[in-house]
Computed example of a mutant assay.
Amino acid sequence: MGQRFIHILNVPNLDLLGVREPEIYGRDTLADVKAACLRELDGTGVGLIFRQTNAEHEMVGWLHEARIGAFGIVINPAAFSYAGYSVLDALKMCDCPIIEVHLSNIHRREEEWRSRSIMTRSVTAMISGMGVDGYALAVRHMLRIDRRNAA
Score class of each variant (00 low, 15 high):
E110H: 13
L103M: 13
W113A: 13
V60F: 03
L17A: 09
I24M: 11
S128M: 05
R108D: 12
R148S: 10
D32R: 11
E112F: 11
G129C: 07
E65F: 08
A36K: 14
I8E: 05
E111Q: 13
I75T: 00
L137M: 14
P97E: 00
N149I: 06
S122M: 05
D28P: 09
V123F: 00
C37K: 01
F80N: 13
R140M: 07
T44V: 04
A136Q: 05
I118L: 08
I24V: 15
M126F: 03
K92Q: 07
A125Y: 01
L143D: 02
A150D: 11
L17E: 05
E65H: 07
T124D: 01
I75R: 00
V74G: 01
V101K: 01
R121Q: 15
L16C: 10
A138P: 04
L41F: 05
E110L: 09
V19D: 12
T124E: 01
L63E: 01
F5C: 06
R27Q: 12
Q3K: 15
S86A: 15
A151G: 15
G129I: 02
Y82I: 07
G129Q: 06
A66M: 05
E111C: 05
N105H: 07
Y25K: 06
G18T: 08
L48H: 09
G134D: 11
N76D: 10
S115A: 15
S128Q: 06
A83H: 14
R114F: 07
F5A: 07
A79P: 04
S115K: 14
I106S: 06
W113P: 01
I127F: 11
I106N: 06
G72H: 00
V74S: 02
E111V: 12
R39M: 11
I73C: 00
R148W: 11
R67P: 05
A78S: 15
F71H: 04
D133Q: 14
F50R: 04
I73T: 01
K92S: 02
V19R: 15
I127A: 06
E100N: 02
H107N: 12
R51W: 07
L143M: 03
H102Q: 10
G134M: 10
E65I: 05
R109W: 04
R121H: 12
L41T: 04
E100V: 01
A79T: 03
E21D: 15
A150S: 14
H102C: 08
I6P: 02
G43L: 02
S86W: 04
A31T: 13
V11K: 07
I49D: 12
L91M: 01
D95E: 14
H102E: 07
Y82P: 00
K34G: 10
M130N: 11
P97W: 00
S115G: 14
E23M: 06
A151C: 10
I49H: 14
R67L: 04
A151R: 14
P12R: 09
D32C: 13
L16Y: 10
I75V: 03
A151S: 13
N105I: 03
N54E: 09
P22Y: 09
D28V: 06
S104D: 08
M93L: 15
